[in-house]
């Protein structure tokens, strides 16, 4: 009786079409927008990298091959920006993550007024980035802000001057602003992950005789690890592209000491209107970030395989 052929039942064409197209109808508007405003410009941008595109020069637009990349190889400002990007991204991510994790752990304990505290410490995230930049620029300004005077009083500065105009210290300005602004992101994400850890695991561990440090190492960290890995990866990429604070606070100065690649691209496009060269730099940045992401993913794979 099991040998009879199963005649596949076929609904009418109209119904099949309607059923199959339904999910596409729901997602089409979003997709059209993403393709038109992000994917097409991305492809265009890649093509600009190989063309001479200057907004003010009507005779530009020709295909010039790898000329931009050759110029880039000679561009000392670009290599400076690359070093600054590393420094800016590394310091920002490390500090944001460390303080974000501590904050998330503090907020994971119930206490009176937690809801209010949570809203207040997450508030910097809602501050528009340009305003965060201006705000911190003012705080570092000795005319109007208290920070130079405090740093002088603590002996960290030999005079209450503006660190944003000191080539050796200027990068700390945007980094501090970025840390202030970015802690909530890490705290929110890690707090959400913390709250998803089943409470009875801690109780079981406590009954088994684990102290607070052991509980943190053997339960909290392993549970958070995937979230930490993915947020650190995403944030690293995001922060190395994040030029707002630098554009607002120092505009790359003094003497290009705070110029990162992202702000350099913006300067090339916005101030010099040299879209071709800007796109070439952007393409290099994109490739570097892709390589970085791949390396992280590969590293994770090998670590998983070993474990």
């Amino acid at each position: 009786m099991m040998h009879q052929p199963i005649a596949k039942h076929r609904p009418p064409l109209r119904k099949r079409l309607a059923d199959a197209s339904e999910p596409y109808l729901y997602s089409a508007p979003a997709l059209v927008l993403i393709v038109a405003v992000m994917l097409v410009p991305l492809v265009l941008g890649i093509s600009y990298a190989f063309r001479d595109i200057q907004l003010l020069n009507p005779f530009s637009g020709g295909f010039i091959g790898l000329d931009h990349f050759r110029a880039l190889g000679q561009d000392q400002a670009f290599f400076g920006a690359l070093r600054n990007t590393l420094w800016w991204t590394g310091a920002s991510v490390l500090l944001q993550f460390t303080f974000g994790l501590i904050l998330a752990l503090l907020l994971d304990k119930p206490f009176y007024g937690r809801g209010l505290v949570q809203a207040l410490v997450f508030l910097p995230w809602a501050v528009p980035s340009f305003l965060a930049g201006l705000n911190w620029a003012w705080l570092f300004n000795p005319v109007i802000g208290p920070l130079p005077h405090w740093l002088y009083a603590l002996g960290l500065l030999d005079a209450p001057h503006n660190i944003l105009s000191d080539p050796n210290l200027a990068m700390w300005g945007p980094i501090v602003a970025n840390v202030w602004w970015g802690i909530p992101f890490f705290a929110i994400t890690l707090l959400a992950a913390l709250q998803a850890i089943p409470r009875d695991l801690y109780e079981a561990a406590a009954i088994d005789g684990a102290g607070p440090v052991q509980r943190f190492l053997s339960i909290t960290l392993p549970f958070l690890a995937p979230t930490i890995a993915i947020t650190v990866l995403l944030r690293t990429v995001w922060i190395s592209n994040f030029a707002d604070l630098i554009v607002v606070m120092t505009n790359g100065g003094p003497a290009d000491r705070t110029q990162i690649v992202a702000s350099y691209i913006f300067t090339q496009a916005f101030k010099r209107l040299d879209f071709g060269y800007a796109s070439a730099i952007a393409l290099v940045l994109l490739v570097l970030l892709l390589v970085y992401s791949m390396l992280i993913v590969l590293l994770r794979q090998t670590m998983l395989n070993k474990g």
């Binding site: 991305l42 265009l44 595109i53 952007a282 970030l289």
Partner: peptide
Amino acid sequence: WIVALMLITQMFPLVMLVAPIFKM
């Protein structure tokens, strides 16, 4: 593919789109 597309758009540098979007 839709999920992949949306994830990728979160990864690439938006500054890269400044020039082409202006031109478009």
